[in-house]
Simulated scan of single mutants.
Amino acid sequence: MRPIHLLLPLLIAGTGLASAAGAQGYLGIGMNQNIFFSPSGQPFRSAANEPYPVMKWFQQVDTDKDGKISHDEFVADATHFFNSLDLNHDGYINSPENTNYETKVAPEIQVVDPRVKQPKNYVAQPDDSGQVSDPTAGRYQKQLIGASQYGLIDEPQPIRAADANFDFRVKSDEWLAATNQRFTILDRNGDGFITPDELPKTPSQLASEMPPPDAKKGKKKRFTGN
């Protein structure tokens, strides 16, 4: 099993999903829907005037409808999605099947959403003598790309992330190991269940809740001389 630090959660400002209302109707340039990727990489979509689709996933996984996701429910949902991607049913998601995932199941993974706010990267500045204390600072720029834009965990490609031995295919036991790690990450209080309030907002969700650019520009006050 890979170290859990390889699957660090995407820490995002804001409370969980308890206050997650609908989108504000602004979807950015070229975007016509809101998108959520489950921890396994399954896409869920909704129109601008509908709630952000994270609860579509939550309700799908919560099969006993008790308002929380158990480990067994989480694994069952991930296994079902694995089987849907394993088109030839040989127990692996191979490269052609992964390509099918990227191009047909979740094509949004290949583009950068213009709405998503990218993290600021530190670049060291020279001191008074003109020397830079860390010449490597800023060389490797962090970006939110792929599924990281739409997911609860910072994994740009959830299928490839489960390939523990880097043989370009994901076996069912590798998938289970990754699924267990993802559950541990999202079960933030360690009680064996995932509840809506434990889930951070995705970068895409935060973007969908921002007002349109025009709304940020307040009307100029007319000078009256008073």
Rank of each mutant, 00 (worst) to 15 (best):
S133P: 03
D113K: 07
F74P: 01
N88H: 07
I109P: 09
F58H: 00
S95K: 13
P156M: 06
P119E: 01
N94D: 15
F82P: 00
A48N: 05
P51N: 04
V105P: 04
T99A: 15
P39N: 09
A106H: 08
E108D: 14
F36I: 10
V123S: 08
D113I: 08
S172I: 15
P156H: 07
I93N: 05
F44E: 06
Q110R: 15
V111P: 02
F81E: 02
H80V: 09
L152V: 05
V170C: 10
R169Q: 15
P53L: 01
P114I: 11
Q33K: 15
R45W: 08
S38L: 10
P158Q: 07
Q141K: 13
F74E: 03
D64E: 09
N83I: 07
Y101R: 04
D128L: 11
V54W: 04
A76Q: 12
E108R: 11
D86L: 06
S95M: 12
K117Q: 14
Q118R: 02
V75S: 03
I145G: 01
R169D: 14
A164H: 12
S70H: 01
A78W: 10
Q143P: 00
I69D: 00
N165Y: 05
Y122W: 15
G67P: 01
V170K: 13
S129D: 07
Y101C: 01
P39M: 09
G151W: 05
F58P: 00
R45A: 08
R45I: 11
Q143H: 07
Q141M: 10
Y122R: 13
A161F: 03
F81L: 02
Y101L: 02
T103G: 06
E108W: 14
G146A: 02
S84M: 06
D86M: 02
K68A: 09
G91F: 05
Q157L: 12
V61H: 06
E174M: 10
T63Q: 13
K171H: 15
R169W: 13
E102G: 13
S129G: 05
L87Y: 03
N100A: 07
D134L: 04
V105E: 04
Q118W: 01
Q59K: 12
N94E: 14
F166Y: 15
A164M: 13
Q125I: 07
E102N: 15
L152Q: 03
N83E: 14
V105Q: 02
E174D: 10
D173M: 11
G151E: 05
T79Y: 12
S38Q: 10
R115Q: 11
V112M: 12
S148T: 15
S38N: 11
N98T: 10
V112S: 10
L85P: 00
Y101V: 04
P107Y: 09
Q157C: 03
Y92V: 11
N100M: 03
A161L: 03
V111E: 11
V123K: 15
K65H: 06
H80C: 06
S46G: 08
S38D: 10
H89M: 09
E174H: 10
S129E: 09
K142E: 12
D173A: 12
P39D: 11
D64V: 07
G67R: 02
E102C: 15
G91I: 06
Q59V: 08
K68D: 00
Y150M: 05
G67A: 04
T99F: 11
N83M: 09
A124E: 15
D128Q: 11
K171R: 14
V105M: 03
D62L: 07
S129Q: 06
A161C: 00
D66E: 12
S95F: 14
K142T: 13
G41K: 10
